[in-house]
């Protein structure tokens, strides 16, 4: 059995999906005009006829940012349990210094990675 609040979240998502589909496919279909014309369905490009495909090669720059992002996003997720329990460890158990040092060793190692990426020019925008 799902906890009530999580069930509410699922129902919110379901209602949102239903509302969008009903609005676009039913309500708007009743009131909107339908006057097809082949020119209307051309790709928009400020009145010019579009040339070539959009399935082009994309600069490698974007992938490098994505790789650095994945490292740090995982780091952020790993830090959340630490952040929630930090006060309890510090106040009740008196272990604040230890888990503080542990986490900042972890962050420090990742920071070395960031500095390395920085020095290698991964974070510079390359002209393509």
């Amino acid at each position: 059995m799902v906890a009530p609040d999580y069930l509410q979240v699922l129902v919110l998502a379901a209602v949102a999906i239903a509302l969008i589909i009903v609005t676009i496919e039913v309500v708007a279909r009743i009131v909107r005009p339908h006057a097809p014309n082949p020119n209307k369905y051309e790709t928009y490009e400020c009145g010019e006829r579009t040339i070539g495909s959009t399935g082009v090669k994309i600069g490698v720059q974007y992938y490098l940012y994505a790789l650095v992002f994945i490292i740090f996003d995982v780091e952020a997720v790993m830090l959340f349990p630490w952040a929630v329990s930090f006060k309890e460890f510090d106040g009740v158990l008196g272990l604040g210094t230890i888990i503080f040092a542990e986490v900042f060793m972890f962050v420090g190692i990742l920071l070395i990675g960031l500095v390395y990426a920085w020095k290698r020019g991964v974070l510079e925008w390359q002209e393509m």
Binding site: V31, R32, K40, Y41, T43, Y44
Partner: peptide
Amino acid sequence: LLQKEDIMPKN
């Protein structure tokens, strides 16, 4: 917006 024709690019 509700009254606008539904135009979708053909490709």
